[in-house]
């Protein structure tokens, strides 16, 4: 009897302690997908003369984390990279429409 309880407990502990199973599964494809979006947006920003260097830095960091197998962190960092890329495109679009000389030059 004791043995059975022990076995159940043992397997339960094993389950809980396995990182891939204790937390909801996160496949590398999620971070990869976000990273791909970030890359394509960053490319677009550069084509609009508005790329930010920090986007590239974060994409590199995300890639490194993915290689290390840290999928959760990789996803977080890839999301930040995508945000930077989106903001840089917004800046470039806005500037194309509304750049101006400063008022003291008029």
């Amino acid at each position: 009897m004791n043995k059975i309880i022990f076995c159940i407990l043992f397997f339960f502990l094993l389950l809980v302690s396995t990182p891939g199973l204790s937390t909801p599964a996160l496949s590398s494809s999620e971070a990869n997908a976000v990273l791909k979006q970030a890359m394509s947006l960053h490319k677009q920003a550069i084509a609009n003369e508005g790329g930010w260097r920090i986007t590239g830095k974060f994409m590199k960091k995300a890639k490194k984390l993915l290689d290390k197998g840290d999928r959760r962190k990789a996803l977080d960092v890839a999301i930040r990279a995508r945000e930077f890329a989106e903001l840089s495109i917004m800046q470039a679009d806005m500037e194309k429409k509304s750049w101006s000389e400063p008022p003291y030059l008029k």
Partner: peptide, 19 residues
């Protein structure tokens, strides 16, 4: 346009520093 365009994460144009 290129000269007076803000760029980068700092959002600076050339004139912010050199004027």
């Amino acid at each position: 346009r290129v000269y007076f365009t803000r760029r980068g994460v700092r959002d600076f144009a050339c004139y912010h520093c050199h004027w």
